[in-house]
């Protein structure tokens, strides 16, 4: 076998091993938090999906309840269209988490409550507000 062929086989071999490895990890991730399925609230409720999922929606106004005993414990209602879903979350909340915020939660749906372990708010590093709101105030009013 000439050396060119040997190298060729070697390269094919490496590529084969790596594709196998990537495929294997994709099928059997070691950490259960490695993957999450993006679903809509509709799908989640209808199919009663209990494996790890990711949901996007808005925080319903006035729905944020923070526990009296442990201030990290928090529950709120996620709205997607007309559908609503109770969320429980017990970790540090992002700065931009508030009524009406657009959030993405990751976690599991168990018996009517979604237990989230990840809570992301949109627009963390980009800030593109709606200019029309500027109509409501101007600088001099605020300073006074």
């Amino acid at each position: 076998m000439n050396s060119n062929k040997k190298f060729f086989l070697m390269i094919i071999g490496i590529i084969g091993v790596v594709i196998f490895w990537i495929g294997w990890v994709s099928m059997n991730p070691a950490d259960e938090k490695a993957m999450a399925t993006f679903v809509s609230v509709d799908e989640l409720l209808e199919d009663n999906i209990t494996h790890r999922t990711k949901l996007g929606g808005l925080v319903k106004d006035g729905s944020i309840v923070i526990s009296e005993t442990n201030h990290l414990d928090c529950s709120f209602v996620l709205k997607e269209g007309d559908l609503e879903l109770n969320i429980k979350y017990d970790r540090t909340r992002p700065d931009l988490f508030k009524d009406g915020a657009e959030v993405i939660v990751t976690g599991q749906y168990v018996n009517g409550v979604f237990y989230a372990d990840e809570l992301q708010t949109k627009c963390a590093s980009r800030y593109e507000g709606d200019l029309r709101d500027e109509n409501s105030y101007n600088l001099s009013e605020i300073d006074s």
Partner: peptide
Amino acid sequence: GTKITVGPPFFNQI
């Protein structure tokens, strides 16, 4: 047909 996102544990493992 389902959108599956992968997180840091996936990338780290690979």
